[in-house]
Design a protein around this nucleic acid. Structure first.
Lengths: 167, 167
DNA sequence: ATAAACTTTCAATTATTTCTGAAAGTTTAA
DNA sequence: TTAAACTTTCAGAAATAATTGAAAGTTTAT
């Protein structure tokens, strides 16, 4: 396999994986592209490379910036804006984990807490409901805390975690 | 809030969360419904409760069974089939983690390995490509192994993990 | 073998999500 | 100011994914 093919395959794969995890394909592909780029890229270069429209590129770059994993940069003497990606995988994973926790897990926890706290009569159905949703709340909360704890090791958290688990 | 409202809210929330993580809404809702049910449910009961068609119910139940988190059951003397869900959250999470690893992470790893092993010339772009994809491969492999290791504690793996992290 | 009771499949439809591109908005330099 | 260079927005179009429902398939009892 030669470079161009590998490059295409990598970007495709990352985009497809994104879709499976609830991230839109183009967003994942833009990030994949920036990850392997030595230089910062302009919006035109991204449009050209991925064959997408200006609007699409603009909106997805904005979303990536909101996630905190793509940065806007300026080049001296150039009017245009350029973009680069977080390339450190430890940092990248931490940022994504924190962001998903904030956007999705925390709100879900709030609702689980709410629905599991209803006053129940003695029916079997209602008892099972509060018990199971309470369990779910506890489980998700615990998992969220673990994620938080683990990612606080900062650099090399994954390697440090491996070490801890082996011991 | 009374029972019926809480129940609806819980099922809605779980469905929405499913969508955000690449699982179709109905599939997540059927699972949510079975999780809080004291009895096994027939396909009719699921259709009725979630207001969905027979075909939709059938296909999504099948998918849940393929994932190994919903089970088909028979009642003595009844022709109909009934369904129940894995209610133990530790087991549920392990099953989902293993399945996603098999279906999505392992194939992605194969491709990352492939594209990161290309023979490169000395250009900066090609060097950066192989370096970054190699890093990605290592990182994902390590994360996949951690997940595997952690879930092998079997029952109470999450609680055991919490203990290990506190020490 | 037959037929009732049930489940699965899949082509067509519907709903949802993503993408386009032109217009509106913003910034910078002169 | 003005206008060129650039970015963002968003209504409509296109693509994708989910859903329906009726026909085909399967199982079980007689």
């Amino acid at each position: 396999m030669e470079f161009e093919e590998a490059r295409r395959k990598y970007i495709q794969t990352w985009g497809a994986l994104g879709s499976q995890w609830g991230i839109n394909k183009t967003m994942a592909q833009i990030h994949a592209l920036l990850m392997i780029s030595t230089e910062v890229l302009s919006i035109e270069e991204i449009m050209e490379e991925l064959q997408i429209s200006r609007g699409n590129a603009s909106m997805n770059i904005r979303a990536l910036i909101d996630w905190g994993i793509v940065f806007k940069e300026s080049k001296a003497g150039e009017r245009k804006e350029f973009f680069s990606a977080e390339k450190d995988l430890d940092k990248l994973a931490v940022t994504i984990a924190r962001e998903r926790s904030k956007r999705e897990i925390k709100p879900a926890l709030r609702i689980l807490k709410e629905v599991s706290s209803i006053k129940t009569n003695s029916s079997k159905a209602e008892k099972q409901f509060t018990e199971q949703t309470k369990n779910l709340y506890d489980f998700v909360l615990k998992a969220d805390n673990v994620l938080d704890k683990v990612t606080q090791y900062n650099e090399n958290w994954l390697s440090k975690l491996v070490v801890r688990l082996i011991k």
